[in-house]
């Protein structure tokens, strides 16, 4: 069973890594930094539903570290960790209560991710002006969360049921 888990970890991290790259290829449609689809959250969500909480968290952290080192800078890594950890905690909260479908969990995670990043950016840059981005990022996080949540639901439906 253990080697199987390692294989799943590797698979998920690789997938998240590729999706991060794919997302970096999308042009920025809106002139607001931070507006993005969050495709990598798809992998974290699937891991959460199919494997387990601890595993999903582990995969998420490794993913952020790898992607940060490859595509980002020290600062973007800091933002990513802030967004990633907050987003994961919020997703746990929503997932654990069992009152939300994967779409609700995804939306909560997407919004928490954006809010976390902006809060860290406000602290680092010591600029209150970033508050103006917040509403936009809440809206974009919600919409992106819906899209990713629907995708996750469809993928999970089609995955075989013997991962654990």
């Amino acid at each position: 069973m253990k080697s199987k888990k390692i294989a799943y970890y590797g698979l998920c991290i690789a997938l998240a890594f590729v999706l991060s790259y794919v997302e970096s290829l999308f042009p920025t449609f809106i002139a607001v930094p931070g507006v993005k689809l969050g495709l990598t959250n798809l992998v974290v969500l699937i891991a959460l539903v199919k494997i387990g909480k601890k595993d999903a968290f582990f995969i998420n952290m490794i993913r952020i570290l790898l992607v940060g080192f490859t595509f980002g800078t020290a600062f973007s890594l800091l933002y990513s960790f802030a967004g990633g950890i907050l987003s994961f905690l919020v997703m746990m909260l929503f997932y654990g209560k069992n009152q939300f479908s994967v779409i609700g969990v995804s939306v909560a995670g997407g919004v928490a991710h954006n809010v976390g990043q902006i809060l860290v950016a406000m602290m680092v840059l010591e600029s209150k002006a970033l508050v103006y981005y917040l509403p936009v990022l809440i809206l974009s996080g919600t919409l992106a969360g819906v899209v990713v949540g629907i995708l996750c639901g469809e993928v999970v439906k089609r995955l075989p049921n013997h991962t654990s």
């Binding site: 929503f94 939300f100 779409i103 609700g104 939306v107």
Partner: peptide, 8 residues
């Protein structure tokens, strides 16, 4: 679920 829609 209904809660999802409320949240959104």
């Amino acid at each position: 679920k209904k809660n999802d829609i409320i949240l959104i």
